[in-house]
C-alpha cells in the first residue's frame, strides 16, 4: 500500500515538474527519503519517478534512471565528507538538484556517443 502511494506521489511530482515548475521534485523526495534511511521507499521513488518523468517528457527512461542513480551516488559522497547538520543537509540537497542536470546531460552524451 505504501509503495503504491509512493508511485502515485512520484507520478504527481513528475507532472508538476513538467507543467508548473522545472524543479526535480521527485529527486528531492528521493534525497529526503535516503537521508532518513528509508532506502526501500527511496528506490521505489527512483524507479517510479524516472518512469513517469519519461512518460511526461519523452526523455529516455534508462538515461533518467542513470542520472538519478549518479545523483544519489554524488549525494552519498558529499554527505560522507560534510558534517551531519541541517544546514549542510539542505545545501547538499540543492547542490545535487543542480548537479542532476549536468549528470543527465553527461549520461545522455555518453550514451549517444556509445551508440
Amino acid at each position: 500500500m505504501t509503495n503504491v502511494l509512493l508511485v502515485l506521489i512520484a507520478s504527481f511530482l513528475g507532472l508538476i515538474q513538467t507543467v508548473v515548475l522545472p524543479i526535480n521534485f521527485a529527486l528531492l523526495l528521493i534525497l529526503i527519503l535516503v537521508s532518513a534511511n528509508r532506502i526501500q521507499a527511496g528506490l521505489v521513488v527512483t524507479i517510479a519517478g524516472s518512469f513517469f518523468l519519461s512518460i511526461f517528457t519523452n526523455i529516455n527512461f534508462g538515461i533518467l534512471l542513470i542520472s538519478f542513480s549518479l545523483s544519489l551516488i554524488i549525494y552519498l559522497i558529499i554527505r560522507k565528507y560534510t558534517p551531519d547538520r541541517v544546514i549542510f543537509r539542505y545545501t547538499t540537497f540543492v547542490s545535487v538538484l543542480i548537479i542532476w542536470e549536468i549528470l543527465f546531460q553527461f549520461s545522455n552524451r555518453v550514451f549517444e556517443s556509445f551508440l
Binding site: V34, S50, G62, I63, I66, S69, L70, L76, F111
Partner: peptide, 22 residues
C-alpha cells in the same frame, strides 16, 4: 552505505539496458 552504492551502481547498469531498449 556500501550496499547503497552497490544498489545505485546496479541501477546504472539496468538504466543503460533500458536506454538501449527504449
Amino acid at each position: 552505505k556500501r550496499s547503497l552504492y552497490k544498489i545505485f551502481i546496479v541501477l546504472i547498469v539496468v538504466g543503460f539496458l533500458f536506454a538501449v531498449l527504449e
